[in-house]
Amino acid sequence: MKKITAILTVLALALAALCGTAAAEEKTYTIGICNYVDHASLNQIVASLKERLSAVAEERGVTIRILDDNANADGSVMQQIISNFIAEEVDLMVGVATPVAMTMQGMTEDQPIPVVFAAVSDPLAVELVSSLEEPGANITGTSDYLNTDAIIELIFAANPAAKNIALLYDAGQDASATPIAAAKALLEAKGVSYREYNGSNQQEVILAADAIIADGADAVFTPTDNTIMDAELAIAEKFAEAKIPHYAGADSFALNGAFLGFGVDYAELGRATADTAAAILLDGADPAKTPVRMFDNGIATINTDTAAAVGIDYETAAAAFAPFCTLVQPIATAENFE
């Protein structure tokens, strides 16, 4: 194999020499983006990432070719997509969500291809980077680490008398483990009682939602949990009818009917991921020394339809939440971001 490569390289060089030096062409870079699964927040990251990359390309007078695939949560397909990227000789790979980033890390162990991850909640815990400031290898990116305490504070800002909090999440989602532990610690410190409800698929989540309503919780908290997110359209109506506000860790929850989605602006995160990729590709930044960017910009998104159904006035809530976040914005229920 090496011999063949060598011979081909020599031939190509000879050919180039024969033809004379080619005119200074526009430099072309190839980026392979692999998304983990079809999901409103993740899709939004990919969309804004691509948009930003093409803007940067235009600005800097280079061509950026983008290969874009979705692994549909299948580990084998993920490996094949990434090996396809390697075969295409991409200059950089972007892995959206933790499993993709981890597989890219494994498959580029013997290759010097830089990897930029997006929306990995806890890159330290899954050993993608050795520290947030100095990742130490070919991998860096953006994290959507959730500021759990801020969301829990919002619950009490809206309803100081809240006594029973339901924690709804999928125990199988790695991204949920840390924020749930943080939420429990804060609630215990406040002396408020809580109960955990789990579901690992849509049916189980719906059953868990019924249990929450039967138990009469004052509010529901969910971290950045993809399983609950997938079921949100189905459970939002139940919570609204039972007048229980659902506080969740991403604005896409509010889009799909949760009372409040707090957290990362994924469009902004996508743009920042693109900027990191551009810095590595165009300015020669070293991923080992490029810090992981955290997104804790605290945007509270309130679903006005649900707020009306639950009986919370939008203006009052927005005023109550204002001290805890950088921005409070309204949204109406829809399936996808515009």
Binding site: A73, D74, G75, S76, Q79, P99, M102, T103, Q105, G106, M107, E109, V126, G172
Partner: peptide, 20 residues
């Protein structure tokens, strides 16, 4: 072997294996 080859374990990695 699959987990060791891709250097990570995911609780959903076996999904659809029987069909494949």
């Amino acid at each position: 072997l699959m987990a060791q080859q891709q250097k990570s374990f995911d609780v959903n990695m076996g999904q659809g294996m029987v069909t494949v």
